[in-house]
Design a binder for these strands. Sequence first.
DNA 1: TACCTTCGTTGTATCGTACAACCAATATTC
DNA 2: GAATATTGGTTGTACGATACAACGAAGGTA
Lengths: 153, 153
Amino acid sequence: MIHVADAHRGREESLDVIQRELTAFARRARSTAARLHPDLPLVSYTLLAHIEHRHGCRATDLAAHYMLDKSTVSRQVAALENLGLVERHPDPDDQRIQVLHPTTAGVQALASTQASRRAAYRERLGAWTSEDLEQFAEYLLRYNSAGEDTSPR
Amino acid sequence: MIHVADAHRGREESLDVIQRELTAFARRARSTAARLHPDLPLVSYTLLAHIEHRHGCRATDLAAHYMLDKSTVSRQVAALENLGLVERHPDPDDQRIQVLHPTTAGVQALASTQASRRAAYRERLGAWTSEDLEQFAEYLLRYNSAGEDTSPR
DNA sequence: TACCTTCGTTGTATCGTACAACCAATATTC
DNA sequence: GAATATTGGTTGTACGATACAACGAAGGTA
C-alpha cells in the first residue's frame, strides 16, 4: 500500500527533476543553437521563426512572447533587417506600429535552417514512438502556456 | 483508417512543436531565472546546484554537463568562491584537480533559492496529476540524456 | 489644448560566453 | 629517464544579448 506522504514525495521529486532537466536544457541551448546554425545570428533565428509562425507580427509581440525588453527586440529586428531577412511595413491605421514580415530571403534562410534543425531533432528523437512524441509535445505546450501572461510585469 | 503519410505528418508536427516550445522555454529562461532569484548571480546558481547534486565535482565536469567553455566555468566558479558559496579542495592524488564543494553558506543559499523555485514550479504545475508530472519528468530525462555525449566537441 | 498611454529607438552598462594563449601537473612514448 | 603529449585550470580579449533609462513620435482622452 502506498502512503499519502509517499505520493507527495514522488510529486516533489518529479518537480525537482523537471526543474533540473529544463534548466540543464536551457543552459545547453545556446551551445546547441550555435552548432545548429552558425550562420544565422543565433538569437535572431528565433525571432524570425516566430514572425513567420505568426504570419507577421509587431516588435512588441516578440518582446512579450519571449519576455525580452523592447530595446533588445528593437536591435535584433534591426539586425535582421540589415541582413535583408525581414521587412517592416507601417500600419496605415496606426503610424506607431510597424508590422514585421519575413522577406523571401528570410523565408529561405529559415527553411534551410529549419531543415538542419529538424534533422538534429529527428536524430535525437528518432527512437521515440509517435505517441510519446505527441505526448511530450502536449506537455511542453501545457507547461509553456501556463506561464504565458501570469508573469508579473 | 490512418494512412502512413498521415502518421508521418503527425510525427513531424510533434517534432516541430517540441522544437518550438523548447526554444521558447529556453529563451524565456533567463528572464524567469532573474525573477526567481535576483540575488544569486543567476548563472552561478545552476552551477552551484549541480555541484551539490553531484556531491562535489570538478570544474571540467560542469563544463561538460552544461556545454560551456572551461574559461567560462573558471570565472563562474571564481565568482562563487568570492561569494563564499563554494570551496575548492585540491585532490591529493592529482594536483591538477580541484574538487568543488558548496560551503554551508552555499547550501543555505541554495536551499532558500530552491524554496522559491519550488514554489513557482508548484504553482505552475499544481494542476497536473502525479502521473503526468512523472511522465513529463521521464520525457525530459530521456530527451536530455540523448544529447549528452553525442555532441561533436 | 493639455495630459497620458503605446510603440519604438538610442545611450550606456553589464553579464555570459567563446577562443586563444598560457602554465602546471600528469601520462605516454621511445 | 628524457622528450613529448595530454589534461585541468587561469587570464587576456572580444563580442553578443540583455536590461534599464531617457527619449521621440503617434494616438487617445479629458
